[in-house]
Amino acid sequence: MASGRKKPKSSLAALSDLQNAPTQPVYLLEGKDSFLRDEYLRVIRRKVLGDGPDDFNHDRFDWTEIDAPPIITIAQTLPFMAEKRLIEILNFTRPGERDESIFLSYLDQPSASTALVFCVENVDMRTTFFQRLAKASLVCGVDILEGEELKKWLHGRAVALGFELRPEAAEMLVEMVKPSMMRLSTELEKIASYVMPGTLAGPEEIREIVGHSREELLYKLGDSLSQRSLGGTLVLLRRMMETEHPVRFIGLLRNLIRRWTISKALIRSGRGVQGISEVLGLPPFVAKRLEGQVRGLRSAYLRELYGKLLQVDRKLKRTSDMKAARQALELFLVDVRSSRSGAHKVV
């Protein structure tokens, strides 16, 4: 049994350890990402139970519906016609005094024929219980991947599904979907069903297949407004109005104008795409897209746009009539286009 507190490894490193290391008597899966947690549980199940039936040697409990005695009774029972049994405890939190005592007694001498898995969102290492649990366990961090590790996972997952991702496509996918391993996995599966096997998917495929997200709508809205495309902007508005409240469209516009204003100031100061990327925390391809959108926009126009947006926002908050709300937004967009094209003087 290992000694001392084991700091959770990164998710990919932990998965590699699980696949290559001997089966452990106790595991602690620590973190909030349910998708990654289930990935680890699948690996543990294969190691402990193999590929055969597991009806008699696999138990899965929700800690909110059970206490320690029946879990430990099962853990101390020999497996049925197999070498190992597996017990998973989901939604585990710090137990009460009686259950804590029972668990700690078991952790001092865990059964060699049982793998006991604690799935915990938040481990409070200030408590004696979690200190001793961590000391007795193989500890794996199951929070969402980030940075290079997330990109590595995306590329590996894409290859497993039969296609490849360009680096800029992986960045776009993360930006559009936002942190959620489950959603990222689902979008990769959608892409795999759309492209031919062996395809090297780029930004165009991502826009086409995943392009109904909030972020992509924001980019398309920016393209339409900066290019004076009233028709394109109205199409986006009507698409959103099919399922969303107009206030969401206002939110998109507010976010867009904020990005435009900051990008415009950065361009004027000479920082360009790199500055936009650093200040707004966006991938370079997104920063380049913003730079292209604001090149022909004047600061006075952005101020006027924001002022008119506030007026529309106040109108929408005073009505529950969806038809009237859409008409108000359409009139706003028509007014914006005429102002942008010079029919109204911008000061």
Rank of each mutant, 00 (worst) to 15 (best):
A13D: 14
V235Q: 12
A192D: 08
K317L: 00
G162V: 05
L36C: 05
R60W: 05
S213K: 03
S11Q: 02
L297S: 09
R271Q: 12
M125R: 15
S180E: 09
S341D: 04
I71R: 06
R295A: 14
P203F: 02
E100G: 10
E189T: 06
F332L: 08
D99M: 08
D143Q: 10
P69R: 07
G281T: 09
A287I: 07
W260T: 03
R94S: 10
L221W: 01
M1N: 14
I87E: 10
L188S: 09
T64R: 09
L28R: 11
D143H: 05
D17S: 07
I267L: 13
S3P: 15
M181Y: 03
V273M: 03
Q327K: 10
A287R: 06
E187C: 15
P167L: 01
F35T: 11
E100I: 09
L225M: 09
L218K: 12
F163H: 08
H58D: 06
D99S: 07
D321Q: 11
V346T: 15
R157T: 12
F80L: 05
K6P: 13
G156V: 08
L218R: 08
R271D: 01
D124M: 11
E30S: 14
P53N: 04
E175T: 02
L217H: 15
L133W: 07
K9V: 06
F118H: 05
W153T: 01
L161D: 04
I71T: 04
T73M: 14
L256W: 01
P167R: 05
Q311V: 07
R85I: 12
P53Q: 09
M181S: 06
E208H: 04
G251S: 04
S224A: 15
G342T: 13
G198C: 01
P95Y: 02
S320E: 15
E187A: 07
S137N: 11
D143V: 04
V123I: 10
R98N: 10
K152Y: 00
L230D: 05
P283E: 01
F92G: 03
I102N: 08
K7I: 13
M125F: 08
G281M: 02
L234N: 06
V159A: 11
N255K: 05
L218A: 10
Q24L: 09
K308T: 11
I257M: 12
S101L: 11
S213W: 03
K84A: 02
P167A: 12
V48E: 12
L253T: 07
L184Q: 02
R37L: 04
Q76T: 15
E164N: 14
T199G: 03
E171S: 08
R318C: 03
L266S: 02
K317N: 04
Y106V: 11
R289Y: 00
G222V: 00
L78S: 14
I72A: 00
I144Q: 06
A328R: 12
A300N: 11
R166G: 09
G198R: 02
Y27E: 08
